[in-house]
Structure formats: structure tokens, C-alpha cells
Design a protein around this nucleic acid. Structure first.
Lengths: 165, 165
DNA sequence: GTCAATGTCTATTAACTAAATAGGGTTTAT
DNA sequence: ATAAACCCTATTTAGTTAATAGACATTGAC
């Protein structure tokens, strides 16, 4: 998994829209300005977010973008998967596919990769835009939201225990 | 974090050398053949592994490569960090640096990235080449070897248990 | 001491990807 | 009608990755 610049921009844009949730359409220019993002590049990103139905747009004068769902229902994993593809820490799943057709050792290596992916996914799926955007922040109990979200999948990956560090 | 093809090759090469640990020097050609890796490319990778003192080489006739440490003391994280750089899931740490100089929301996003990195690091640091290479495999109790390895340093790295899958 | 085997090193290439920019087209509020 | 905004496609630039090429250096065997 590698979060590209573009992916980071997308996250920032979504955070900005969360901050201005329920304030009507926000212009690309304003998002770009407030988050210090290249405007034309951001345009493409917002288009993708729109096609994925995460935001909606209004055209023409007084147009702009806004979230389609409340920030608390938008997971970081969604955004990253959309912009940067699967959360797996390896490039092409096909090369890895060949690993599992070999012996147990290669399969074990593959499994480690899957564990890494699952660990990352667990975090990114249990964190929503609301968790980090915190528009009007009472800065205490911010992690409460996170645990809420954790209730869902709960079985996805292996159990890790280490002695320290 | 993104494990490149090159990183995967490095892991495979190290696994192969683990499989032939204490059998003297192994030729590049044999590693390439057994793991089906491009020979000249592998050459460069082994050079890097040598410069990082993870393997040692003998030149000339009867030359080749071998591990400098027992497989149980070589962590996947070492190899990946060497070949692919830091385990962080973001590209350039500098862009991220700018995030933490903003408001709490941006810092929170940064913290999520750190959490992802730590989760990945935890797995890759607690898994050694021995854990997955399994040199002379009686193909049952594959996880036995893993516990064996855990006996040695006992504090340095964690113990991994997987539910299965 | 020659020769073949083998690792060392530097350079180069081809393909791909990421980031950004350009510019015209379309829709809408006023 | 006009200006404000999003929509869409194309292009550029720079950088990276994977792989190859080839000359060089060292060693063991005879």
C-alpha cells in the first residue's frame, strides 16, 4: 500500500468538505486555497470522488462540491482505495498469485503480506473523516468514534501478540 | 509502504539462502534458477544485501553467497527497509511533515498514517526468514519452527500466532 | 601461470507512472 | 446574455522501476 500525493490530496479535500458540511456547495477554488492544493489537479480528483458517489456537485454559477454522506460515514479506506487502489502492500496481485502456487514457504510469505494488508485495512476502515476532521472540536474523547467503527468486521485477520515494543 | 518487485525478489533470495543455510556458498545462478528470478537483476540485489551485511560473498571459482546470520535472526522488515525504504505508507515524509504544522485535524490524519506504519512494522519485525522459510519441511506442524525461533532472543521480537487462513 | 568460473561495478535502456497543466466544452444563476 | 462554475480530454514533464549489457577483478584448479 502506498498513499500517493493524489491520495493525500483527496483525503485533504474530503476533510475540508467535512469541515464545511451542511454549508452548501464549496467551489474547487476554495478547497484548493484552503488546503493549498493545485487547483487543476484537484479538479480531477474531485471528479473521481464524484463518480464514486462520495461527493456531489452543482454546476454553473453558485456551483461547487459537497459530501453526499455525513463525515462519520466516510471511511479513509474508501477514499484511498478509490484513488490508490487496493490496500495491499505489494504491487501487482498477479506476481503474488504465482507465489501461492509454489511451496509452503512461498505461501507463508504471501500470508504475511496479507496480514500486513489486513492490519492496515483494519485501521483505515475503522477511521472516518469525522474522526480526524473534527469540525467543532471538543478535543477530548476523540477516539470514542474509532471504537464504534471497530465493531464491524472483527474477524478479518490473524491475532498478533508480541512480547514488547 | 509498497513492496516492490525488487523487494519481493530480495525476500525470495533470502528465503532460498535460508533453505540452504550452512551448505556453503550458493551461486547467483542457482538462486536465480531456483527462485525463477532474472539473474542480472538479482545480482544487483545481492550486492545490496551484501553491502548491508546481511549476506556474505566469496568471489572466484567456488564463489557464491550465504547468509551471515541464522535465518531466525533476519527479520522481513530489515530486508524490506533496505530495498524499499521506510515502511511508512506514504511517499515522502516531507510532504507529511507539512501536515503536522497545520491544525489538529491534519495532525490527526498524520497520526493515522503513523498507526498504519506501526501496524505493518509490528508484523514485519516480528516475522523472521526462519518463520517462513521452513528449510527441511515435514509439511505438518509448520508453526512449530516459528516457536523454535522465538526461543532465542526472547525479548527482541514478538511471537506471531495466526488463527489460520 | 593460465584458464575458467564467479562475483563486482557502472552504465544504459525501455516502459511505466505520477503529478501537474492546458484548454475548450457545458451548465446554471442572475 | 453573461459570467461563474464544473466537465472532460489531451499533453507534458519528471521520475522511477525493472531489466540488460558489458567490462573488470578475484579465486580455485590443473
Amino acid at each position: 500500500m502506498k498513499i500517493s500525493q493524489k491520495g493525500l490530496y483527496a483525503l485533504q479535500a474530503m476533510m475540508m468538505l467535512a469541515r464545511h458540511h451542511n454549508q452548501g456547495a464549496i467551489r474547487i477554488r476554495d478547497i484548493a486555497y484552503e488546503e493549498e492544493l493545485p487547483e487543476k489537479f484537484l479538479e480531477l480528483i474531485l471528479l473521481e470522488l464524484k463518480n464514486a458517489r462520495m461527493v456531489e456537485s452543482a454546476r454553473g454559477a453558485k456551483g461547487g462540491y459537497q459530501l453526499r454522506r455525513p463525515p462519520s460515514e466516510i471511511r479513509l479506506s474508501e477514499i484511498i482505495r478509490l484513488i490508490d487502489g487496493p490496500l495491499a502492500p505489494f504491487g501487482d496481485a498477479d506476481q503474488l498469485r504465482s507465489l501461492i502456487d509454489r511451496d509452503a514457504a512461498h505461501r507463508a510469505l504471501y500470508q504475511v503480506f496479507l496480514d500486513v494488508r489486513d492490519a492496515a485495512a483494519k485501521i483505515l476502515e475503522s477511521t472516518t473523516i469525522a474522526d480526524i476532521a473534527d469540525p467543532a472540536p471538543s478535543p477530548r474523547h476523540k477516539s470514542r468514534k474509532k471504537n464504534e467503527a471497530t465493531l464491524l468486521p472483527m474477524v478479518v485477520h490473524g491475532n498478533i501478540q508480541r512480547t514488547d515494543k
